[in-house]
Design a protein around this nucleic acid. Structure first.
Lengths: 338, 338
DNA sequence: ATGAAAGCGCTAACAC
DNA sequence: GTGTTAGCGCTTTCAT
C-alpha cells in the first residue's frame, strides 16, 4: 500500500507522479505542461505515471504559484439573445480543447454590473479577456487596462480603444442588403428603422449608398425612435403600405420589425416573395420556421467568436497584434417556411 | 511609501491588511469571512483596513488552503434553450450576492461530454453542484458520488438517486391542462404528442386522468414517435381536423407542435379562441408575440433554479435534506398576440 | 477570543 | 536538460 494521494484532497499530487516516474517534481511539472526543454523519454515516463495515477492538476495551486489562471473571462451583455449564445459556443470550441476554462460574465446591458463583474473576475487572474463592444464605464476601462491581461473586443469595430477588435461593419451589412435587393430586380426600395441608434443609422447609410452607387434612389424611409418590437413591425409595415404601396423591397433594420411585417403580410394574404422582398437584420428565433421567405442578414456570431478566440490565443502566445481590426462581414441567409 | 502590495500579483494581501489593522493574519482572515468568534471591534478595524487598501481576496490561495473553492458547478444540457437560460439566471440571483461564482457546464445533451465536464470541473473543487435531470453515465454518477460535493438535481423528480431534487411533476402538468380546458367548457378534448418519451407519456396520463375524474372521456389521441417540430405540428393539426373535426380543445405535448398548429389555423382562418382551445407545453420563444391566444403550460424554470439554489445553500450550511423532493408545480400562461 | 506555525500543490528563479 | 530552493496567499491545526 503506497501513499499516492494527498491527505487534504484525496487526490494524487505532482509529488506522487514525480516519485512514480523517478524524476523531480519540476521536471514532472514541465513535462505535463509540454515545456519543450524536457527530454522526450522523460516526458513519456511522466505521462505514463500521471496516467497510472489518474493524476489531475490542481488549478488553484497552479494559479497561486504562477499568478495566472487558465481561465478566459468572457463578458456578454445578455444570455437571452441567441446571438451571444452562439458566440459563446464558438469561443468555447476554441478554448476547451486547449485546456482553458471559460468564465462567463453576463452584465445584463448594465455598465455598473459590468464593472462589478470585471472587478470580481479579475481576482481570479484570468489569462485573457473577451469583451463585447466598446461602451463601458471609465472605471471598467481602467480596471481592464491596469490589469494588463490581454483582451480582444468583439462585435464592434468602431470606437477609439487601441486594441484588437473582431466584428463587422454595419455599413457594409446595409450595402449588402441593397445589392441583394437590386440584384433581384427590386427598384422601389424602402428602409424601415426603429430605435435609430448609431448602428441602425450606419446600416441605413450603407443601404442608401449602395442604392445611389447603382444609379437609383431610395423610395422611402420609415423611421421612428421607438424601440424595436414585433408589434411595431406591424405598425410600420402598415404605414409603409399606406405611404408607398408600390414598394417592392424593404430592409427592416431589426429582426422583430421584419417579423411583425411578415406576419401582418401573411394575415392579409400578401405574397411576400412575389410582391415584396423583405430583409431583416438578424434572425428572430423561430422566425425562419414560421414566415414564408424572410431574407435575413445575420451577424456572423460564430465567426466572430472563433476569430476573437484565435486572436486572443495569439496574444497569449506573445504575438503582437496591436490595434488589429478584423471585419468578418456578414451572412445573407434566405429562410423558407415549411 | 509603505509596501502594501504583493510583489507577485501587485495586489495587497491579507498580510498587508493585517499589518494595517494591527492584528494577526488569521484574525484578519476570520474577520473577513465573518467567522463569529472575532470581537466586533476587531472586525470593524479589519474591514476598514481592507477597504482602505481595496483588498480583494485571492480565490486561488483560498481554494488551495481550504481544499474548497467558492464556485458552484451548474450542469445544463443546452444553452440554446431559453428554459435553461432562465434557470441559470435564477440560480445566479441566489449565489452571486453571497459571493459564490458559477461554473457553467453545457454538455449539449451528450453524456460523454457531461462526464468530461464533471471530471474537469471537479478538479476546481466546487463547493456545490447543481445538475439537470437524472440520466447520466454510470461513470459520471460515480465521479459525483465519490467527490462528496453536495448536489441538487433540477427539473426531474423521478429517478432512483437518493438525493435532493427540485422540479415538477409531468403528470400534474397534464392534469392542469385538462382542468383548464374543462373549466372553459371544452368537452371534445384531444391530445397530440410526438417523440413519445417518458415525459410526454406522463403528461398524457395526467391529462387523461383528469378528464376521467371529471366524468368525461378523451375524444382522440394523435400520436407519433417522430421528433417534435413546427412542421410536424402543422401535419398533426391537419390530421386532427380530418379525423376529429368536432374537437374543441387540444393539448399539444410540445411548444413547437402547438405553434405549428396555431400557425396553420391562422393560415386557414380558423379562429382558435372561438372554435378551439390550444394548449402547448412550454413557450417557443417569440410564439406569444405571433400567434393569437396560445395557452401555454410553462416549466417553472425560475422557481426551480431559485429553489434548487436555496436547497444547495442549506446543504452547504450543513443541514440534512436527505432525499428531499420539491415539486414546484407549473404555470398556466395565457399569451395573446398584438 | 486570538495567535504562531505549518502547510495546501504547484511553478519561478536560479543553480548546476 | 534537470534539480534545488523558495515562495505564491491563504487557512488549518493547535496552542494560549
Amino acid at each position: 500500500m503506497k501513499d499516492t494521494r494527498s491527505r487534504a484532497t484525496g487526490r494524487p499530487t505532482l509529488a506522487h507522479v514525480a516519485a512514480l516516474a523517478g524524476v523531480s517534481q519540476i521536471t514532472t511539472s514541465r513535462a505535463l505542461r509540454s515545456v519543450p526543454t524536457v527530454a522526450p523519454e522523460l516526458v513519456e515516463r511522466v505521462r505514463a505515471a500521471a496516467k497510472a495515477l489518474s493524476y489531475v492538476p490542481n488549478p488553484a495551486a497552479r494559479t497561486l504559484a504562477s499568478a495566472r489562471s487558465q481561465s478566459i473571462l468572457v463578458l456578454v451583455p445578455a444570455l437571452s439573445n441567441h446571438l451571444f449564445i452562439e458566440t459563446l459556443e464558438a469561443i468555447q470550441a476554441v478554448f476547451r480543447p486547449r485546456g482553458f476554462e471559460m468564465l462567463i460574465g453576463n452584465y445584463h446591458y448594465d455598465s455598473y454590473e459590468e464593472e462589478e463583474l470585471i472587478r470580481n473576475y479579475l481576482s481570479h487572474q484570468p489569462c485573457g479577456i473577451l469583451l463585447t463592444g466598446f461602451k463601458r464605464s471609465a472605471v471598467a476601462a481602467d480596471l481592464l487596462a491596469t490589469s494588463g491581461v490581454p483582451r480582444v473586443q468583439m462585435m464592434d469595430l468602431g470606437g477609439d480603444t487601441a486594441s484588437v477588435c473582431v466584428g463587422f461593419s454595419q455599413g457594409s451589412a446595409g450595402r449588402a442588403v441593397a445589392d441583394h435587393l437590386l440584384s433581384r430586380g427590386r427598384r422601389k426600395l424602402a428602409f424601415v428603422g426603429a430605435q435609430l441608434d448609431d448602428r441602425v443609422m450606419q446600416r441605413r447609410a450603407g443601404f442608401q449608398q449602395a442604392i445611389a452607387d447603382a444609379g437609383f434612389s431610395q423610395a422611402v424611409d420609415i423611421l421612428t425612435p421607438e424601440p424595436s418590437s414585433v408589434d411595431l413591425g406591424v405598425t410600420l409595415f402598415k404605414r409603409l403600405l399606406a405611404e408607398c404601396p408600390q414598394t417592392d423591397g424593404v430592409f427592416f433594420c431589426n429582426d422583430d420589425l421584419a417579423f411583425g411585417a411578415c406576419f401582418e403580410a401573411l394575415r392579409k394574404g400578401i405574397s411576400i416573395p412575389q410582391r415584396l422582398s423583405v430583409v431583416g437584420f438578424n434572425d428572430l428565433p423561430g422566425a425562419s420556421q414560421m414566415v414564408p421567405r424572410l431574407t435575413t442578414v445575420q451577424t456572423p456570431r460564430a465567426s466572430i467568436g472563433r476569430q476573437a478566440a484565435i486572436n486572443l490565443l495569439k496574444l497569449l502566445d506573445g504575438e503582437t497584434l496591436d490595434t488589429e481590426r478584423v471585419d468578418l462581414g456578414f451572412e445573407l441567409v434566405v429562410r423558407e417556411s415549411s
